[in-house]
Amino acid sequence: MLKIEGINKRFGSNEACKGINLEVRKGECFYLLGPSGCGKSTLLSMIAGHLSPDSGDIILEGHSLLNMPPNKRPIHTIFQSYALFPHLTVFENVAFSLRIKGVVDLEERVLKKLDLVSLLEFKDRYPEELSGGQQQRVAIARAIIDEPSLLLLDEPFGALDTKLRKEMQLELKALQRSLGMTFICVTHDQEEALSLADRLAVMNSGSIEQLGTPENVYDSPATRFVASFIGESNILDGKVEGDKILLSNSISVPITKKFQSGEIRGVVIRPEWFELNDGVSVFSLTGEVISRLFQGASILYLIKTELGKIKVLVPVDDDLSPRQIGDSVVVRCTSGSFEVV
């Protein structure tokens, strides 16, 4: 539905976006994920029309958006600070886009939308009287009332505290599904992206490092950056030899991707693919526990081994006698296939 072709944007000597290409499908909840300064917000601004790309094209449902000013695009943005109109009531905030269009009988539509986001009783209040979560709902209602083709959300949960964040995330996802609207969201919070996105693009320094579903990106990171940015991971470097990588003199690991023999590459192993008890393994190591973090349902261990420090995640139930700092352990890798970056 939305095609982005070869977008480039530079600010002075800073190349914010380099040759961005991606497609967003109708009804999808698409995420742009990356650290600050990676260009995700810049890209979003260009889709919205607040910035113009230096080169490339943005095509919405077959039409190029390039020369369309933001107020003509059937796209609305929800800003991180919500940017509600302080001098208007909640009702008027939501009614704004309809009033601009000259719609006269808007009362019913506005009230329906307010009801949809459970803010009907607040219709005559002013934004400053509302909580963060309520303000976000006003911003959402305001943006969806005239049925835009695309909704852009810039760090939508950044301003909320952790508990509220999870609640609003679930609500937003449900809303998106029920409306069937296409969302493009920007965030640096990979947990949020992994849990809400249908597909996502991981960005770094102006380029897209990987594009795919959350499962793809998590299980098969395409680059070292993606591997370390998404979730916890261990990246073990070793020399390529044919269809194997030698991690050490005695340990080698089969790989599927083809590389030049002799190259040094990193093998990505997620902490949960290691185990500390006895059993079958692709390879195993001895090591010493140097740190542990209790995380409620699991424990994250940092183990010193001949291959370096390894993070191991063990569910609390599995570990019949939890290890302490200083214990000697045997670390087994149970994964079948290995991603190499």
């Binding site: 919205a48 000013p69 933001p70 107020n71 940017a83 005239d146």
Partner: peptide, 17 residues
């Protein structure tokens, strides 16, 4: 807050509006 003016334009308002 400049973003408020940006939001207005985003929602369809012209510069004058």
């Amino acid at each position: 807050d400049k973003k408020v003016e940006l939001a207005a334009k985003d929602l369809g308002a012209t510069d004058r509006q």
